[in-house]
Structure formats: structure tokens, C-alpha cells
Design a protein around this nucleic acid. Structure first.
Lengths: 110, 110
DNA sequence: TTAGAATATTCCTGCAAACGAATATTATAT
DNA sequence: ATATAATATTCGTTTGCAGGAATATTCTAA
């Protein structure tokens, strides 16, 4: 979980993940599309790989990276425990009650 | 998005968010339950607040922090674009095809 | 107004991470 | 074996946090 969030918290890495969503890519292509130096891409891919967010498949001279969905699924599960907070609309009710209280305390709106 | 991920990538802050999932809390209570110094909690809350992940409501001497679900909803929406990758099982098919290729290339299975 | 509780901010230090440049590694082709 | 392409790693530098300690702020109560 933490490794996943840490990996995704870096803008370039997030971008790489979004790029790989459309299919596997070799390192060079990623570097080209993101306008990054190849070494930086390799380093970012290493972090993503350590976090389990990408997998590699060697192909001749190149290494094809592809997205691994497991960590994203875990993130999804984690989010699920919060989902009812906005689906059940309990927060909207709370906001509404606060709004009422605010209006009664200060009749002059904003 | 990036602010959200950056904020959640810190273990203590993630813990605070999980704590606030069960309801609003004043700073002191958070510090107690997480065994953290109050100043550190205030600083983490500042980051969470800047990211829109928490809101504050002053109450007398104290400041009650509560979870804001908007950023988590955005994260949910972002995840949604990846969800079909594991729901449609295209990746499993890909794994299966790779497995076949691996076996035919090396008959002696590891 | 003064004392005290709850919270926020500042200053400092240490550390981890990102970048650029250079170099090393791995694989292919001749 | 050598040259070359693709990728990975290392090194040095810089920057951005996170933590601790101290201090400042804000609010309440008398």
C-alpha cells in the first residue's frame, strides 16, 4: 500500500503508469513520449517494479514493461472502505445540518 | 491528484486519514491515538488540509478535523480507468499466452 | 488582564529522493 | 571478436520533506 502510493506520488511515475495503461512499451518509447532522459526512466521503472506496479518481459535487445494491476486492485480495496462515506450521503447530510446552523447564526448570507 | 497521492504516501498521514474515517477528531486525540507529538500532527494535518483531504471546524479551544471525501472520490475516478484491466481479464489472457510461449520455448518447466 | 490549555509555526538537522552526466551492462549483428 | 543499440547503474549534487525542540498563536476562564 505505502509502496504503491509512494511510487504513484511522483508525477513522472504516475505518467508512466497512465501510459502503460494503453499497452506494454519498451523503455525508449516511454522516454520519448514523456520527454525524459532514458536513465531517469529506467530509474523510475525500477521503483515501479519494486512496488509491483510494472512487470518486464525481455524482447531481444529491449525490455518491454507492462502494467501490473495487483497493487491498483489493493488500492481499490482500500478505497472501498471509504466509499460508503460518500455513497451513503451521510456527509451531505452533515454539510446540510452545518449549513442550517450557519444560516441561523448569521442571517446575512455570506 | 498528485497532492492527494503525495499526502497519502506518508504513513502517519495515511493513518490519520484512516482514523478520521470513523469520525471527526481534535488534534490532541489524534496525537494520542497515533503516539505522535502534537506539533507533528498539526504539520501533517496542514498537508492533508492543503490537499483537501480534511476540513476543520473550530470548537472552543480546539479544532476538530474531519475527513473530506472529494479527493478520495477523484482517486476513485482515476482508478476507474484502470478497473477494466483486471475486470475484463485481458491480463489473465495475456499471462496465459505468455505461459504457453514460455513452456514451448523451454520444455523443462523450471 | 492574566493564566492556562489546545493548537500552530518556526528553526534546525538529517535523510531520502530526483536529476544530470558519465559509465557499465546486456544483447544483437556482422 | 567487435561495433552498436538499448537499457541499467553509479556518482555527485541539490532539493524537499519529516522529526525534535522551542516558541508563537488562539481561545477560554477567572
Amino acid at each position: 500500500m505505502n509502496a504503491t502510493l509512494t511510487a504513484l506520488a511522483e508525477p513522472h511515475r504516475l505518467h508512466i503508469v497512465e501510459l502503460l495503461r494503453h499497452g506494454p512499451l519498451p523503455v525508449g518509447d516511454i522516454a520519448d513520449r514523456l520527454h525524459l532522459q532514458q536513465p531517469q526512466v529506467s530509474k523510475h521503472l525500477r521503483v515501479l517494479h519494486d512496488a509491483g506496479l510494472v512487470g518486464v518481459q525481455p524482447a531481444a535487445n529491449r525490455r518491454i514493461y507492462k502494467l501490473e494491476t495487483r497493487p491498483l486492485q489493493e488500492l481499490d480495496v482500500w478505497l472501498d472502505s471509504f466509499r460508503r462515506l460518500w455513497e451513503n450521503r451521510f456527509d451531505q447530510l452533515e454539510d446540510y445540518l452545518q449549513e442550517l446552523q450557519r444560516k441561523s447564526a448569521e442571517p446575512n448570507g455570506d
